[in-house]
Design a protein around this nucleic acid. Sequence first.
DNA 1: AACCGAAATGTAATCCATTACATGAATGAC
DNA 2: GTCATTCATGTAATGGATTACATTTCGGTT
Lengths: 335, 335
Amino acid sequence: MVNIQDVAQEAGVSVATVSRVINGTRCVLPETEAKVRAAIAKFAYQPNLSARNLRKNESRIILILTPNFSNPYYSKVLSGICDVSRNLGYSTLIYNTYDSNALDEKLVVSLFQKNRADGMITLACNRDDRWLEKYAGRYAIVQCSEYAEEMELPHISVDNRLAARESVRHLAASGHRRIGIVSSSNSYLSSANRMRGYQDALEEAGLPGEAALVAYAAPDYSFSSGKQAARTILTSPNPPSAIFCVSDILALGVIAEAGKLGLRVPEDLSVMGFDDVDYTTMFHPYLSTVAVPCYELGRGSMELLYDHINRKPGAEIGVYLPHQVVYRETTAQKR
Amino acid sequence: MVNIQDVAQEAGVSVATVSRVINGTRCVLPETEAKVRAAIAKFAYQPNLSARNLRKNESRIILILTPNFSNPYYSKVLSGICDVSRNLGYSTLIYNTYDSNALDEKLVVSLFQKNRADGMITLACNRDDRWLEKYAGRYAIVQCSEYAEEMELPHISVDNRLAARESVRHLAASGHRRIGIVSSSNSYLSSANRMRGYQDALEEAGLPGEAALVAYAAPDYSFSSGKQAARTILTSPNPPSAIFCVSDILALGVIAEAGKLGLRVPEDLSVMGFDDVDYTTMFHPYLSTVAVPCYELGRGSMELLYDHINRKPGAEIGVYLPHQVVYRETTAQKR
DNA sequence: AACCGAAATGTAATCCATTACATGAATGAC
DNA sequence: GTCATTCATGTAATGGATTACATTTCGGTT
């Protein structure tokens, strides 16, 4: 494999000059630069990244901690992260934590040490993972989608509270007086904030909150847990005519269960999802939902991380991307 | 950051000995080893990977070329790859080629050179990408799911031809005499082999092939292209009573279009998919399909790659994992 | 007692790019 | 004409782990 020596020799200059040309660190005479570039081109020379990283004391590796690779939401985010990181010259080491919601402190530290990662992006930490703060100074960390509350750590997400509020407001504006919510019994800030937004909207519309309208699905966001939650709500004495769900898959479960109970969507029951993953429009009724810019969240989190790795002054702490509530076929006027 | 020097000093031995303990390359006296291990533990020492890679002339990075990160099939495969690669100490650099089916030769070479990757896994190459062979000696390459035909390059997949044959054989055994196929107009070997399997089964059952029973959906495997293909087949003069599809999403499209045409599934039309992605059981009718062990394909491809990187004698060239045809709610006896 | 060989460990070269410091040439000021 | 300064480039140290080769030690053989 050709190295910087060979290039220097070919160009008739020293290795230092070649390095300067490559990195553009100091002025090099145009004709010298031309010679060097010619030699680089001739050999198709590529600097050895291990040597460079060793010298510069960086790894050009960023860690990504994701709970579940195959979840379409996360895979979209990952896609955004990978595209940007590739352009910035970083390798991504994706670590699947398999829905173990606890973002393990020991794991994080050991991953950092073992890989000497330059930074990390977490896709799902709990709202009370305050220990992250301890490492903020030492390592560059960005939290994407979920983040630990009340901490000065970089994070990027949508405004979950507002999005939920808008969705539920729409349901109320469509005449629904009894609006349920299917949340998830996890410790994500998004779940908490979507619940808050739901309550905001009820209050705003002058509707009373009621325990029977609230169900918590299992923390796995699965289809079947959505069905189960729906059953609880819909078989109660005075069931709602609309249900807001904190995820699309849960909403799909709700729709399935509603069908089982003889309810038509949207004629008898309006349903709203959250995220807008691909299959929301893969079969009818198309799901009304909140479109979350997953890919852009991924891109944004990597860009944010890059700024923090390079200690760019003024790098932001909290970034919020715009969402959009989309009304399709699972929501209708109350009859 | 603590280095091997510090550990050696603390343990009162030379750096060579520390290295030997870490790598287990040569005999070290038990008490010496104990001292070294104590020092390592005390400092929580982790070898610098850049230095190690530089010296060993490896990068511990493997490239993954995938057409579409967010496709559930690929994300499952990626999940398997990442889990194994992590355990083997490799970083994965995932490169999204965005459905540009042409696995670009220049891209591959430049990625290898730039990252000095130790190996590469391709998730989708065309059956005629014979240029790959040129690089087989120089780089470790494993083809997962799709591979270039008639070449001695490592690959792993299911037996697409057999799986298709079994599925269609089942339809024939259920009394269907006119069985259609929705394939995809791409250049994947899987498509070709599933077509061959379809023909095998027809022949086996003594059923005639017929052009009107065959439709090629757009190469994007999309829901809408499935619908379009179904329309072609189902509106022909003498439509089939069963359709075998080369992907689940296409099958979903077929079912949707059948519904539009007033056909009930499975009463009027049996439909089989391929892959068994998550949403096949997310709404009724549950899809009959061929379960492909995506995750295991991912695992297997990384293990295979590892063997080839290390030039393990007897590393296999072609690995075939078992599939399983699952009969759910979209297939029924012909009436 | 002399010698051999194996085992355990140490010394130092090596991988390759970056960069602090050194050198030499050219420019300009007085 | 001399000295300071800047610019372009070269020399060599550096980062940290691996490993070929060297050395020491010790048990065993004759």
